[in-house]
Design a protein around this nucleic acid. Sequence first.
RNA 1: GGUCGCAUGGCUCAGUUGGUUAGAGCGUUCGAUUCACAUUCGAGAGGUCCUAGGUUCGAAUCCUAGUGCGACCACCA
Length: 758
Amino acid sequence: MDSKYNHKLYEQKITDLWEKNHISEPRDETQGQPVFSLVLPPPNANDPLHVGHAMYTIEDILVRFHRMRGDDTLWIPGADHAGIETQFVFEKKLQKQGQSRFQFDRETLYQKIWDYVQENTGVAREQLTRLGFSVDWSRFQYTLNPAIVKSVLHTFEHLQKEGLLYRDLQLVNYCTKCGTAFSDLEVKHQAAKTKLYYLKYGPFVLATTRPETKFGDTAVAVHPDDERYQHLIGQTIEVQGVNGPFRVRVIADDYVDREFGTGAVKITPLHDHNDYAVWQRHKDELPEPIQVIDYQGKMTTAAGRFAGMSVNAAREAVVAAMQELGLIDHIDDKYENQLSCCYRCGRTLEPLPKVQFFVRIKPLTKPIIKKLDAGEIKVFGAGYDKILRNWLTNLHDWNISRQIVWGIRMPMWYRVTPDSPIEVSFLTTESPKNAATQNYRIKELGDNKWLISGTLSQILPAYDLETIKAGLQTVDAPITVPYSLDIDNNQDHTHDIQETDTFDTWFSSSQWPFVTLQNTRPGDFERFYPTTVMETGYDILPFWVMRMLMMGQFETGKLPFANIYLHGLVRDSKGQKMSKSKGNVINPLEVAEKYGADSLRFALVVRSSAGQDKSIGEQDFKAARNLTNKLWNAARFVQLLSDEQKNTTGQEKTNEDFKTKINELVKQITNCLENYKPGLAADLLYDSFWHFFCDEAIENCKKGVLSPTLLRRGLLVYLKLWHPFIPFVTEQIWQEFGIINDDATILALAHWPNPSTL
RNA sequence: GGUCGCAUGGCUCAGUUGGUUAGAGCGUUCGAUUCACAUUCGAGAGGUCCUAGGUUCGAAUCCUAGUGCGACCACCA
């Protein structure tokens, strides 16, 4: 053994040893033993690893511990297609090549992204292996594997049968830049200073932050008890507008806050969630609402001369026009507002009307809340049980439709008739005909390509359905058009057209624990479901963990896991969030290269605490590296004991004391790991190993008061205790020592010590 | 506005469920180099455990209030 531990010489060799011996696969002889199973939170299929992924260390520690204990252990790796994230990255790439997604039909674009993701496949596997994570690669699953997709769709059909799925026209959170709607969870609320405009509005002055939406006003609302406006309630008033006078009705609704602004609100149902709710309550006395902003974020023809302008430009133009007409009372430019922004691109989200599929949430959350209250779900992580409860109680129905191609396409079909109102857009090389008479829209893309859009009734006389389907980009079916579900795609759809929306990525992710086990190997589901624990970052508690609980319980009748361990975010040594712009990002693979995978693992875990963020920096990796070297040298000392030294017996008191201390340590570490406290376990082990074993015991052995045989046996116990945390160096030492008589030849498969080992 | 968390030596954090003189890593001061390891060893300095009450034989730990940070949620235009 060299006097220094050089990880570069051993890590690859050890990885090969483990692979050759299939340490990560469940063994037949453990069947029937207590189960310890979990799924690896699947990384995005196109992403290289970042430091957050290195937190899988916690899972590996638990897995290695339970495996050594002889539990029936399985850790399933996977990859997530990560719909919007991946498509967004790919579109950026297209942009760099001077292309855009609108130049491709749906199928071609999907194939391009598929190929792009394929290029990066294998990277994650290689990197995870590099860090020593003992997942069972033979059971790897990808969210877009046909079998997985089938399982996911099966759940979807089940939801439909139970009446938990509905299609509705609602105001959704729509990002005009990303070109898709999102669920409530993807909305980021950001404080911002906006202008609050006080508009002269017939007999009213009213306050609004969005004067550009006034073309969609269908009412003015006041509080029913507001004395100032009693005489106007129920009246239709005439209002001077920039496009000429118009008439709106004055309604009374409790929603209005008398104290805010002037106590009068303009109601623009299709561009504000509250206004939409008010409109629905007063539907009978109000006209049909008007859409003034389209899905590209441009003003519609309803805005008259402002049509085609972007929202922000229109706002300024409208205000300027109103000022000219003397219609602006005054402007408050210090107003603090909460803007709804796209979590992905940061743009302000537009509430826009859209027909989407929703999952009814209450029936799904109810049983989970009950189990949470009954203590059947254990959450490790500072206070996150309460946060989970809060989420479950306040959750709204889940919009699962996304207007992107990268994902699982919704298995909904619409019947095509000659007078169909379904809006479609498609690419074609067939030159447009009868455009003038048929009234569909044409955009020339060059290269003999055209983008055609309009309703099927407009387009069908010019193009047959096959052509439309071949170049299809989008399908928008009005709420009045019925749909049929065909999850196996085995019906005759000659006269149908399929929905182009895809599922929210989290819809498939939410089923991960059971769809994986249903498709790994026959018998796996029965053997390993429910899983033992879900370990992930607290930041995806609502997106993922909560939904897994709901969907798992719904589909399998059992919670997908009863234990939830939430780790904190990894921050830099000053406690700051890591970001590319700050330049303080840690690349786990660089650290592993420089200090060894063990060092990275140990530094991340030691003294970490569930739910609490962890600060980490160069000095921590160095300290961890020093530990691996210390362990190496302690082993070296034991190896190099002379024959004369080996024959000493030590003093009984020192020997007994040594045994007691080690046995006590085994008890402590076991207890910590059983109770999901890897951070504390690592700390205790470090302290005991360095300051007791090295500083005291080895010195005692040099003095001849501690038996060398005992010291050696003690070291073997430490190697086992250390192994889940720093598997490479411990395994290498184990190999240097050669076969241990009554134990395994591979440390990863050796037996966990018990408190009476010594 | 609602929910949750955090506050412990210069810095970053543990504190094994209330139990003797409160710990670690990094930093720092002094000393040590053939003897497993200088990626080391020995010795030391450094803490009103945020504040004020309370419960208890005993509180960093439990309760109440306050202060200061931070996170998440939220339909006041």
